[in-house]
Amino acid sequence: MKLRKTEEVFFKILMILAAVIVCGSFFLIVGTIFAKGIPYMSLDMLTKTPGGGFYIGKEGGILNAIIGSLYVAGGATILGLFISVPVAIFINIYINGKKFLSDSLRVAFDVLFGIPSIVYGAFGFLIMVYFGFRASLLGGIIAVTLLVIPILVRTLDEVIRTVPRELGDAALSLGATRWEMAKVVLRQIKPGIFTAILLSFGRAIGDVASVLFTAGFSDNIPTSLHEPAATLPLAIFFQLSSPVEEVQGRGYASALILTIIVLIITVLSEILIKKFSKHKS
């Protein structure tokens, strides 16, 4: 009898320990980045592009990479929405009756979601070679779009599935076509669409492997789609591999900037999800 009790207590303590480690690792990571990054943080980092000799420790900032990342992540998310919203509607509204078909499509998008970004990057590079254009903002946007389509489709699909069937039926019984019904459904899930956008943007802005060969790198802020563009994660990676201490330090500061951007996005989407599930009931 006593043994049983001891066993339960033992495992309960183990569970608490595990939960502390898993959740605590978040603080460890963010804490490390803050501690190392803050000393090197400056206004210049946010407002200037790299000056001459930036990579040996002289003047400048990473504005080029911040803007470049916003362009890539923004462009890919917008492009991705144009593809994924129709796809999610198609799966949920147009082929509603054929369960096998819609289930298979869902599995296919789940699998696409599992394909690592390095493969999307390599494939994006193949597309670029095929069409004969060089590493550029456009190339980066295309590769990252491939990466975010499954994220957007999966999130939108889940949100659309929370819409009660009767709402769609109400529109249909007024004589609406499926497309007109889809518009009603989209209106209903507006907060869910924002969540999907945030998730996609957050993933896109932090990914390196997909932009490594496709977006290139440049110290200037790109002014057209065909110019190469720097991205924040890549800037971090490059600065960190420098032997110069000052440059490495700026790498930590850049990591801090990216962490803050991503944390804001994640917190916002968490809040949206909470709100959304409240309205549902």
């Binding site: 959740c23 978040f26 990571i29 490390t32 980045i33 990216l258 917190v267």
Partner: peptide
């Protein structure tokens, strides 16, 4: 309290994990 932290962890980009790995 616990669940949001797991979600926050999933939002951290790979390169940040890399930086953390190097530093810690």
């Amino acid at each position: 309290i616990l669940v949001p932290f797991v979600n926050l962890l999933s939002g951290i980009p790979p390169v940040i994990f890399g930086v953390w790995g190097v530093l810690f």
